[in-house]
Nucleic acid binder design. Structure first.
Length: 410
DNA sequence: TTTCAGTCAATATA
DNA sequence: TATATTGACTGAAA
């Protein structure tokens, strides 16, 4: 599918004409923008945590995979797009030659009309690293700051309150997603032994205290049962967290849902499909798929079930965030510190060798071993992502190779 | 009204 | 040129 994430360059080199990009795939197949696709692939949520809407892109992926001419169609579109672009470009060049130079410099590559688009758009706010640090410190003290605190933060940092509010929303949400991933990874690790590993247990136990982790300074904590607390702490050292339910990634579960429907309950809603997991492998693990097992030989993993939110010992015994956000010493540990991903086998042996389709699809999700980064965090993320995506691709491929037709209703 | 999930889209990075 | 990041927005739920 989409050109691989980080290894795109290499993928393009290997199969220059077969790589599909996130943009093309997203916009054509998923109805999403490139950034959303990237995000989706990099940080898939557990299926059971996805809303109906959130599941849609995965359904679309699956449907697309089931289309025997999927890649070809996409490549055709790519070609057509390229043609159109060249045409536009060409005409713009001739225009600029024949017309006034005032039109020169218009960025046709954006596909935009030469409209005056300036002014109307407000510039994007880019927070300085110090501002982010300050906000993170504040978050550690109070993940759910009161309006007053927000106001103070905004004043101290010279930001708009809406920016601070948005930042907290986004940060909470993104940390939560990271935790989902860690949850899955922890599940995959503990799954090998007993599903009720000590870590799982402890986390489960800790779960009971979630919700009061909001430092208790303000009463405006999150709604009951919702993750809260200094998730950044958990983020840095916890491996699991949160509510119940199997922590399969959306990708696996998506396929399982499809399988479930395929096998008997066509047109059922997705979550119903989820219940009928039958041909799943890897127990929601984020490691690469088994490469030699024949389809259907694997079993699903209920083992991943729910790892309640991690301990709240890190709960901020906090003072008001507003006191010294700018200068305060932070106990915040950036997520980078959590290096957790197992090695990532390549999917290359799994996928049909030599097939253009396989290459294209594989290139979307696979990583180059050679693409080693100096940056540990990058490596970690890549591995994580690669593990996720390798698993996905394997499972979707598997599903796609089944003969039965699927009919889906949305 | 607040929070969240999902997403867009500008911008950064490779 | 592709992917990753992230501030902002929308709509739904509580």
């Amino acid at each position: 599918w989409l050109t691989s994430l980080k290894s795109s360059r290499r993928a393009r080199k290997c199969a220059p004409n077969s790589a599909l990009g996130q943009r093309l795939f997203g916009e054509t197949i998923l109805g999403l923008t490139q950034g959303s696709v990237s995000d989706l692939l990099a940080r898939p949520k557990p299926w059971h945590k996805l809303s109906l809407k959130g599941r849609e892109p995965f359904v679309r992926m699956q449907l697309w995979l089931n289309d025997p001419n999927n890649v070809e169609k996409l490549m055709d579109m790519k070609r057509m797009e390229k043609k159109a672009y060249m045409k536009r470009r060409h005409s713009s060049v001739s225009d600029s030659q024949s017309c006034e130079s005032s039109s020169a410099g218009i960025d046709y590559s954006q596909g935009a009309s030469p409209q005056p688009q300036h002014q109307l758009k407000k510039p994007r706010v880019v927070l300085a690293p110090e501002e982010k640090e300050a906000l993170k410190r504040a978050y550690q003290q109070k993940p759910y700051p009161s309006p007053k605190t927000i106001e103070e933060l905004a004043t101290q940092l010279n930001l708009k309150t809406s920016t601070v509010i948005n930042w907290f929303h986004n940060y909470r949400s993104r940390i939560r997603r990271e935790l989902f991933i860690e949850e899955i990874q922890a599940g995959s690790q503990s799954q090998a032994g007993a599903s009720d590993s000590p870590s799982a247990r402890s986390n489960r136990a800790a779960h009971s205290s979630e919700g009061d982790s909001c430092d208790g300074v303000d009463a405006e904590g999150p709604p009951e049962g919702k993750p809260s607390g200094p998730e950044a702490d958990e983020y840095s050292n916890a491996t699991t967290k949160s509510q119940g339910g199997p922590a399969e990634s959306a990708f696996e579960a998506g396929e399982e849902a499809l399988q479930g429907a395929r096998s008997s309950e066509k047109s059922e809603s997705f979550h119903l499909g989820m219940e009928s997991l039958e041909d799943t492998d890897d127990e929601g693990r984020l490691k690469a798929p088994r490469q030699s097992s024949p389809p259907g030989s694997q079993r699903s993993g209920e083992s991943l079930e729910t790892l309640p939110n991690s301990a709240t010992e890190g709960d901020a015994s906090t003072s008001a965030a507003s006191t010294s956000v700018l200068t305060g010493e932070s106990s915040y540990k950036p997520k980078e510190s959590s290096e957790k991903i197992p090695s990532v086998p390549s999917t290359s042996s799994t996928l049909a060798a030599g097939s253009q389709k396989a290459n294209s699809i594989q290139s979307l999700f696979s990583f180059s071993e050679a693409a080693s980064s100096k940056n540990t965090r990058d490596n970690s993320l890549r591995k994580k992502k690669a593990a996720n995506l390798n698993n996905i691709i394997h499972r979707l491929e598997k599903a796609a190779s089944r003969e039965e037709a699927v009919e889906w209703e949305f």
